[in-house]
């Protein structure tokens, strides 16, 4: 059957549908940040950033940046009413202390027991970890947004990660360009897949068995530019 994989914007849109009203959320630098753009109307979400802000809003207009007011990606931000500032130790207390409802990160690989590799692919160059190893611990849900396969077609959902780990057994849900997969008791459980994609085709590009708990729903996403 014919299908076209989701764009990053469409993956972000799908992840945004699961943002809960009143949730405290950390979106990782880069791709995960896009989720905020698709926050559903009528839901109030409070965004956390590691450098010490809760309740930040959209980027300011060009020329109106205050560079003392930035997010963890060093981009200029604005504040929503009710925002607060705090130092770095309080910020990571919010992370590890179980106070965030959701953290969303990117991934090089996710293993079937929820191990995440997302900070380093080899031993060359300058290593940098930032807050990734902290963010995978403590949030009630730790989700990943990613293409289902690498640029050269290899599975990113795997039996065991071959890249250096960010955290062990930490991911609870993966939103990919083909499917929505939960991690339950050490297994991938398929929740949604593109309607034009057969289960066999999906399994063929997934590096560990996809378990079913009932029929998977269709992964339906609007056209976005």
């Amino acid at each position: 059957m014919a299908y076209s994989k989701l764009t990053n914007a469409q993956i972000a849109w799908r992840a945004a549908q699961d943002l809960e009203d009143g949730a405290y959320v950390n979106l990782g630098i880069g791709f995960p940040e896009m989720i905020a753009k698709f926050q559903p109307e009528g839901r109030d979400v409070i965004y956390h950033t590691e450098n010490g802000v809760l309740g930040f809003g959209k980027a300011p207009k060009e020329g109106e940046e205050d560079w003392d007011l930035i997010n963890a990606g060093k981009k200029a931000i604005t504040l929503n009413p009710g925002a607060s500032f705090f130092h770095h130790a309080d910020s990571f207390s919010m992370v590890r202390g179980g106070h965030l409802d959701l953290a969303v990160l990117g991934a090089y690989q996710v293993s079937r027991n929820g191990d995440l590799a997302n900070w380093r692919v080899g031993t060359k160059g300058v290593p940098a970890v930032g807050g990734a190893m902290d963010l995978v611990h403590g949030a009630k849900r730790v989700a990943v947004v990613t293409d289902h396969v690498t640029k050269d077609g290899k599975p990113k959902l795997v039996e065991t990660c071959s890249f250096p780990l960010t955290g062990v057994g930490c991911v609870t849900r993966v939103y990919t360009s083909l499917a929505v997969v939960d991690i339950v008791d050490g297994h991938f459980v398929l929740r949604e897949k593109l309607a034009g994609l057969t289960l066999e085709e999906l399994q063929g590009v997934t590096g560990a068995p996809l378990h079913l708990e009932g029929d998977p729903a269709d992964l339906t996403v609007p056209d976005l530019d």
């Binding site: 590691e50 910020s91 940098a128 902290d134």
Partner: peptide
């Protein structure tokens, strides 16, 4: 270089 996760560095 001593590389430390950000939250661990703060703590």
């Amino acid at each position: 270089l001593e590389l430390i996760p950000q939250g661990t560095l703060a703590e």
